[in-house]
Simulated assay, not measured.
Amino acid sequence: MNQGDKEGEVVEQVQKKTAAGSRTRSIAFVALTVAITAVSAWVTVPLGPVPFTLQIFAVAFMVLVLQPKEAVAAITAYLVLGAVGVPVFSGMRGGIGVLAGATGGFLWGYLLGVGLAVAVRFGLKAVLARDGQAKGARAFAIDFLTGLVFLAVAYVCGWAQLMAVASMTPAAAFAAGVAPFILVDLAKLVAAVICARAVNAAVGRRA
């Protein structure tokens, strides 16, 4: 084996180890955000048919610290765990009945909202990349807009299922399941953006 072949083999081994380390780190981040989302759901304050939890913060944080595929994988894993009975939903509940219940639409909305939010975020960053990397207020605005997209989808899905399952009028479902949470959820989004930006800076990730 000549010197060139040896160097090529070394480079290949380094690349394999780097790829394996990257996959391990990605799995760890996904698992950690799933755990954070589950714990946030256990912090529950009853407020009419829809309880107050910290899930909006946790899922928005998930979207902002993970790569697009990682975020979709994380929210999917969270919902699958809950569907099979692991008590990861609000009030330490689990089972398909929660997803089919009056508040289940918000959970489905998390999945759809994450998918749309990461697509919007990726698109905005691609457009702004022509002018250089987004920094400061512009970067914060992109992250907050990403959170708003996620929140809007979650609200629409939750509102629709609440009307259907609880036989409520659109106005009644909005008053019970959406209106009381808007201001608090916006505050959660701001907190999620701040925390996510701090974490990304600390670990050197670019979500």
Score class of each variant (00 low, 15 high):
71 A>L: 09
163 M>E: 12
152 A>N: 01
200 N>Q: 15
39 V>H: 01
14 V>A: 14
34 V>H: 02
199 V>F: 14
186 L>P: 00
15 Q>K: 15
46 P>E: 06
191 A>K: 07
149 V>M: 01
62 M>L: 15
112 L>F: 15
27 I>G: 02
17 K>A: 12
167 S>T: 12
93 R>P: 01
181 F>D: 02
201 A>W: 09
24 T>D: 02
150 F>Y: 14
199 V>S: 01
20 A>S: 08
62 M>K: 08
49 P>D: 06
89 F>V: 05
102 A>D: 04
58 A>Q: 07
181 F>A: 03
108 W>A: 04
195 C>L: 14
109 G>I: 00
25 R>T: 04
73 A>N: 06
132 G>D: 12
137 A>W: 11
43 V>Y: 07
107 L>G: 05
132 G>A: 09
161 Q>K: 06
188 K>R: 03
67 Q>V: 05
17 K>L: 13
2 N>E: 11
6 K>Q: 14
56 I>P: 04
117 A>Y: 00
113 G>P: 03
35 A>P: 02
18 T>R: 14
20 A>Y: 09
181 F>C: 04
53 T>Q: 10
69 K>P: 06
12 E>Q: 15
102 A>T: 15
64 L>K: 01
69 K>R: 13
81 L>A: 10
86 V>W: 03
205 R>L: 14
130 R>C: 03
26 S>A: 11
175 A>S: 15
89 F>N: 07
94 G>S: 10
173 A>R: 10
188 K>G: 00
12 E>N: 11
158 G>C: 05
201 A>S: 12
136 G>E: 10
149 V>P: 00
42 W>Q: 03
140 F>K: 05
33 T>L: 13
141 A>E: 03
122 F>L: 12
35 A>E: 04
161 Q>A: 04
49 P>Q: 05
165 V>A: 10
61 F>T: 05
114 V>T: 15
133 Q>F: 12
76 T>N: 08
65 V>W: 10
1 M>H: 10
70 E>V: 04
126 A>S: 13
205 R>H: 13
168 M>P: 01
135 K>Y: 11
88 V>R: 09
170 P>D: 06
82 G>E: 06
138 R>H: 11
160 A>E: 11
201 A>G: 14
112 L>Y: 08
49 P>K: 02
155 Y>T: 01
66 L>E: 06
